[in-house]
């Protein structure tokens, strides 16, 4: 089966060097973490595992991840100054490396805190700038950045899942992947829904009105992000 379909898979992407897996992928993990946290964290602890732990310094993987947390795209030349930008934004960053063996060599855990609120996200860089998220706030997940993905935090009660999927089906959207996980019976649970097309905002609003739905996080940002690179270029950043 053909792996590549478009000439732009070969001539492109436009990105900040030096490595699609250690730089562009790390930016995307940062962007995804920020989207999940929903606001600028005051404190961030980034833990690098495997190859990331060994080579993050030379590849600027730390800068890339911090840049992503600040909302910079994979093509933003400001990534180089991510530590300065973080300081200006009042975001304190701590980098830790771990010898713990992970399933994938390019793994990073991001722990974000603001006030009393803490959320952790673990992502892996799978190559060519693609990422998977494997853990969100203690829930094991499998999020790939190919499809539009929505995370729905909800109380573990009967009927919630059916109500949510009913709304999606009613709007004629096709679910391509779905995962449900919980840590404790009857407590907070996470529903992960990937769809073939973007879920419109009004549909998301309808879902958020469902009883026992606590929070909805739309991860389409991490997919739209390469377009941000194009927009940057169109504005003449290359001149």
């Amino acid at each position: 089966m053909a792996k590549f379909h478009s000439i732009f898979d070969i001539i492109g992407p436009i990105m900040i060097g030096p490595s699609s897996s250690h730089t562009a992928g790390a930016v995307r993990i940062g962007l995804a973490s920020r989207a999940i946290f929903g606001e600028m964290p005051e404190n961030v602890q980034i833990t690098f595992f495997g190859s990331f732990a060994h080579t993050y310094k030379g590849h600027g993987t730390d800068l890339a991840l911090i840049g992503g947390l600040l909302g910079l795209s994979t093509a933003n030349p400001d990534l180089r100054y991510a530590y300065d930008r973080a300081k200006e934004s009042g975001m304190k960053v701590k980098i830790v490396t771990s010898k713990e063996k992970m399933k994938h060599p390019n793994t990073a855990e991001v722990r974000m805190t603001r006030g009393s609120r803490t959320v952790s996200v673990t992502g892996i860089s799978t190559g060519g700038g693609s990422i998977d998220l494997v853990e969100i706030d203690g829930f094991n997940v499998h999020v790939h950045n190919d499809n539009p993905v929505v995370l729905i935090f909800h109380m573990d009660r009967p009927g919630v899942i059916a109500s949510v999927t009913h709304i999606i089906g009613k709007h004629r959207l096709n679910i391509s992947q779905m995962e449900v996980s919980r840590k404790t019976k009857g407590k907070l649970a996470l529903m992960l829904i990937a769809t073939d097309g973007d879920i419109p905002d009004d549909t998301l609003e309808e879902i958020s009105a469902v009883e026992h739905v606590v929070q909805i996080i739309d991860l389409s940002e991490i997919r739209r992000e390469p377009d941000a690179a194009k927009a940057l270029m169109a504005k003449g950043a290359a001149q």
Binding site: I11, I16, G17, P18, T23
Partner: peptide
Amino acid sequence: EVNASMGLICATPTAGSCGVV
């Protein structure tokens, strides 16, 4: 060299080989 300096490049086909084409 721009690639190694965390500068902006176009991968062709990869970042490490982006100077040839």
